[in-house]
Design a protein around this nucleic acid. Sequence first.
DNA 1: CGACTCCTTGACAGCGTTCAACAGTAGTGG
DNA 2: CCACTACTGTTGAACGCTGTCAAGGAGTCG
Lengths: 235, 235
Amino acid sequence: MLIRVGSNPTNRPRCALDLFGGQESFWSEFKYPQSAEIFGEAEPADYIYQIRKGAVRTYKVLSDGRRQIGAFHLPGDIFGTENGEGHRFTAEAVVDTTVWIAKRRSLFAGLAKGDTPAANNVRRLVARTLEHVENHLLLLGRQTALERVAAFLAEMDRRLEQPAVMALPMVRRDIADYLGLTLETVSRALSTLRDQGILSVTGPMQREIVLHDRSGLARHALSLATRAEPAERVQ
Amino acid sequence: MLIRVGSNPTNRPRCALDLFGGQESFWSEFKYPQSAEIFGEAEPADYIYQIRKGAVRTYKVLSDGRRQIGAFHLPGDIFGTENGEGHRFTAEAVVDTTVWIAKRRSLFAGLAKGDTPAANNVRRLVARTLEHVENHLLLLGRQTALERVAAFLAEMDRRLEQPAVMALPMVRRDIADYLGLTLETVSRALSTLRDQGILSVTGPMQREIVLHDRSGLARHALSLATRAEPAERVQ
DNA sequence: CGACTCCTTGACAGCGTTCAACAGTAGTGG
DNA sequence: CCACTACTGTTGAACGCTGTCAAGGAGTCG
């Protein structure tokens, strides 16, 4: 149905997230069922969101249906921090998801009043967003399918704090649309890594990954060139 | 040699760019010859730059030499506005380039003091950067070679304000590294558009483009899905 | 049980890359 | 001025990575 489904917004837990540098702010808790749209592209950006539980994908869609997922957001992550007039992505719950929502007005009001700790935190947040999307440019423009999947797994492993079993919340098509591939290619890359002994794929829907060889994975996920050792242009 | 080559930084024209909302600031003029490095990845970001003349490319490089250009900057554009500790891109002059440079400290000092016009301008600048890079994600992840080249030409046409003859400052390899393609594929796409009568390629180095059919070009450069007309997923 | 979704795997095709040849241009030094 | 070299761009041919199409198994849900 993709309509906004929220719990009663009147129960507002007071949660002083460090985003505000000690200034207490009011956040409302909302719940979205799997595949529910949290906000749509070009909608006014009135709130910012922090995930308590679940996962969210933000994406753009071309007129013929091709989709590019810009990011996955996991518990603790803050999203919806667009600086402009409205959202530039659509946000959907990957699985049943609980978020805390705060009005942007209060946030930027504090920022405009010279609340430098809050301002710095917001800037750091935007900087992280920018850094992620810029690294993703390099992945989408210049890496092979195997490198992309390895980079994705390494990213998830890091963000989930290297669990013994990595439970991916998203389906193969989501991964594919995040990496600019097809779901078949993602599946094949996972099989390749499995055949190399780098990981195991388990779970009822094959969505649990056990990493046996993190350095082997890192060998597939490329690193940036260092200034000390200038890269020879291959071609 | 790629070392910083600057004119005497002591001559400082006073230029109140509207970035500061009327607050006058001091900018120094610098000149960089073709292919000179303006700043390197991970260098401290002490200055911001506005282009007076020429063009600049910002890029990342993988350890094996694969390069992804994140953006081209043209006269009037401001770049080097990273929020974090240091630059996350390398910036090079595409051709002989003149820039105005301002110290970041003065800029963010005004921002922290609650200078809301300046703060809003900086935010708008970062928002534009974010918007461009997010659209580029969609291009790199989900568009064909012809669509990418058409989108690039449409972008340059718009930014150069639809000149009769579009003089591209960058070589084919730069375009390819911006679009995630090879230079041969870029050349082939240009030939295809030429054979379709959409443009002509002229000039001594084939770097002058005359657009005959902008709507024909727009037909190749895809548009985002609209909310009113929900996209049927193709596959 | 039946319909549906999700995932894997195989066969094949195609788009873009790779490799190569050639032409035009710019820069350099005699 | 001209030869020489390096760089840039176009085009052709072949290859290969990834997409497309298809089949089948496993899990989920009513």
